[in-house]
Design a protein around this nucleic acid. Structure first.
Lengths: 223, 223
DNA sequence: TAGATTGTTAATCGATTAACAATC
DNA sequence: TAGATTGTTAATCGATTAACAATC
């Protein structure tokens, strides 16, 4: 089904939102939707929805629209949310713990299989059903469990070395909450989501500081 | 100094990153930098940096470059990180608590002044130096403290009503971690950062699932 | 069949990059 | 002054929107 051209980042970043909205529709018992109706609901253009979906294939039916459950399934497969990529969490501070406990990884194609922290006091403590291990156990753990994803909740200073080590141990993707910027330059070939909460808050701050400086209102759509 | 045209969202979302990198340079004792050097370091083009900065004014000096400390200060002022916008946190679950404790709000132009939660057991407990109050105290608290920002760490179902109430109580900006999408359509005029952690994780998942399907490597730059 | 709505091409819009004159 | 580097205009590239023929 999928076409062979490179999918733009803009499109990719919209897929999870489609997936969510289709899930909601499904919950509401809606079985069929047109691009126009979905667009209305999501506050985007129908054109954009049709263009986006057609990067991957013709999921609709002319004169009818899209089958909600089918389309959701398709997008889910494209994203890979039915996979169970093993993920490890590095750093069990406040944020790390919250991410361990708060998120339903299975919904996002992942499976949290290990937590690592320097702090000896956390050794053996359980978060989200996963025990905290010592950093020294990282090597043997990785050769046994082959984690694909590393969730980084560590100080900026520690990040470069840990990233390098993890890539060496076979980690392919980083969900990065540290203040260290992972780029293709410092870690070539790696798959990254840099989640800079501070940057996000600063953008919000910009919005407040500059509200009404221009007639136009800002309409941010964060990730 | 600032020009009167509308600043594009793309530019705004890059400002915090400039601000961070300039801060690092300052820490390293670098006092002067050219757009070329900064570009190299940030893995962007020098052209983009110059274009971005010139949306706000001429902060550089021809033949010399930019004064690091001065430029950082300018960007800080543009963002408003020296402000102290009062912020309240709604929902003191795992994620909410982590955000209360983990973040240095003063660095981002904010000040956490209140936490609210439905759970009676949390009443009076302190996170990040701020006491948890009952939702019933929200009205009086807002008329007294005039919070500008609300940080939402609440279930999707609760979000629409709480958002409406908060805007009514004078809240201008939402840092939204709930699964409810705030748009200009459902909350007109409001300033928003929707931080969908699940969406971010799904994008990462896409990257893994589709790695190497095309010659091109993906190089996400999350927020 | 007629009406609706997709899939897709073409037009527009905006953002990024390149180039270079201005100037420190 | 000569060299360097900005500020800014022009060229390119990519993303979004509009339009419409294909088709269910």
């Amino acid at each position: 089904m999928s076409k062979n051209e490179k999918i733009s980042n803009s499109v990719i970043r919209r897929l999870p939102r489609y997936y969510r909205f289709l899930g909601e529709l499904l919950n509401e018992g809606v079985s069929k939707i047109s691009s126009r109706e979905l667009a209305e609901r999501m506050n985007v253009t129908a054109s954009q929805i049709r263009q986006d979906l057609n990067c991957f294939g013709g999921f609709g039916q002319q004169g009818y629209g899209y089958n909600v459950s089918e389309l959701r399934e398709e997008i889910g497969t494209i994203l890979g949310v039915n996979e169970k990529y093993p993920a490890i969490l590095i750093g069990a501070g406040n944020l790390g713990r919250a991410l361990a406990v708060h998120l339903d990884y299975a919904k996002y194609g992942c499976r949290l299989c290990g937590i690592f922290d320097m702090n000896e006091k956390l050794r053996g403590v359980t978060f989200g059903g996963v025990k905290v291990s010592a950093m020294s156990e990282l090597d043997s753990f990785c050769s046994k469990n082959k984690p694909v994803i590393a969730i980084l909740c560590i100080p900026k200073e520690a990040a470069p070395d840990i990233c390098e080590k993890l890539t060496f141990l076979g980690v392919k993707a980083f969900w990065n909450f540290s203040h260290f910027d992972i780029t293709q330059k410092n870690l070539p070939g790696v798959i990254v989501e840099n989640v800079h909460l501070g940057d996000s808050l600063m953008s919000l701050c910009y919005g407040i500081t500059n509200a009404g400086k221009d007639k136009e209102e800002q309409e941010d759509e964060g990730i």
